[in-house]
Simulated scan of single mutants.
Amino acid sequence: MLSNLLTILNKSVGYSMDSKVTMQDIADMLDITKVSVSKAINNQPGISDNLREQILTTAKKMGYHKTNNREKSTSYNFAWICPKRFFLEDETFYTTIYYYINKRLMEKGHTISCFVINDKEESENKLPLQFSQESFDGIFIAGEFERSYLKKLEMIDCAKIAIDFYLPDMNIDSIVTDNFYTGFEATNYLIRKGHMKIGFVGNINNTSSICDRYFGYLKALMLNDLPVRNDWRIVNNDPVTGAYTLDFSLPKELPTSFVCHCDKAAFILMQKLHIEGYKVPEDVSVISFDNTSICELTIPKLTSIDINRKQIALQSIDQMLRRLEHTDSSPRKIYLGGHLVERDSITSPRKEQLIP
């Protein structure tokens, strides 16, 4: 009699006595992530006491039995979220990273949804509707959002990986290029070519990667006793929309070379120089970062620091899966290097250009 009653009760919640209740079953029942269930069952930090009690009570009612071996998930459900200003049709850095992440996750049997956030949604701190309707095991945050938006993302109860940025007050893993060192190396390359008057293109208040590249540039100048001039620092894009523009002024006295924070910024600078009657590299040499397809389209072809987007993608996946396995370990900041791809946009300055 009691056995029959238990069978009826278990069927009423969708489980039979013969079925094995999993963490995912509990997560689905409570409309939360599997990571939260794992934290509760394994007595790990990261969830509230009320939620922990609710999970444990539900697990007991559903007949969940913890095993010695960690329960293996056949697949995870991930989200990719990126500001629209970084996910542009003519800017392939983040789109390439997403391509490799999506490809590898599909090969591993996981799923990923892509969300591109426009300026209005970001300024209003508006998360995608799916974030409240669907449970994600992890979120790849690609590109640096406004602080308030990042804080809202940080509150979501799942694993997170920051791609191409970091913030000291964010308690999440980061996969970043060593932008300080690559900025230092790019500037030193120009110095070895004989340049003593070197400018910088990029808004250092826009992202941590631009800021780090600028300070690497600054270190190279200071160590070589070269001038640091504010009029040689140019911004040629909108900080909110990310749109690049020719509506900026060149300094009255041009440096002999520029370090540009990315290939698109360099492309726009080269257009402006051409309009104003200057030749690259005869009058002004240009170097940039990312080594995107733009480098082969400029005239002359653009010298750039290659950032291995496939490596960023694979490291992001590896760290995400590691985070899901070790939810209570300290956040990691993983730095990746870059290498110079020489093309035709740099030459040594003429003798008359070296006169102070």
Rank of each mutant, 00 (worst) to 15 (best):
N4P: 02
L6W: 07
S12Y: 00
V13N: 00
M17Q: 11
M17T: 09
T22I: 04
M23D: 00
D25Y: 03
D28A: 13
D28Q: 13
I32M: 09
I32C: 08
V35R: 02
V35S: 14
Q44E: 15
N50Y: 10
M62K: 05
E71F: 00
F78W: 01
A79M: 10
C82A: 11
R85D: 03
F86S: 01
L88R: 15
I97M: 11
Y99M: 04
N102H: 14
K103D: 12
H110K: 00
T111C: 01
C114H: 01
D119V: 12
L127T: 05
Q130V: 03
F136T: 03
I141Q: 05
S148K: 14
L167M: 11
P168H: 09
I172C: 09
T177K: 00
G183L: 06
G183S: 09
A186E: 00
F200V: 09
V201N: 04
I204V: 15
S208R: 12
S209V: 07
L218A: 11
V228A: 06
D231W: 02
D231G: 02
D238I: 07
V240E: 12
V240G: 00
T241R: 08
A243L: 11
Y244N: 10
D247L: 15
L254E: 09
S257T: 08
D263V: 07
F267H: 12
M270N: 04
D283Q: 03
S285L: 11
F289N: 05
T292E: 03
C295D: 08
L297D: 02
I299A: 07
I299Q: 12
K301Q: 14
D306S: 12
S316N: 08
S316H: 10
Q319T: 09
M320Y: 01
L321T: 03
S330D: 15
L336P: 07
G337A: 11
L340T: 12
L340V: 10
E342A: 06
D344Q: 10
I346N: 02
Q353N: 07
Q353R: 08
L354A: 04
L354S: 14
I355K: 11
I355S: 08
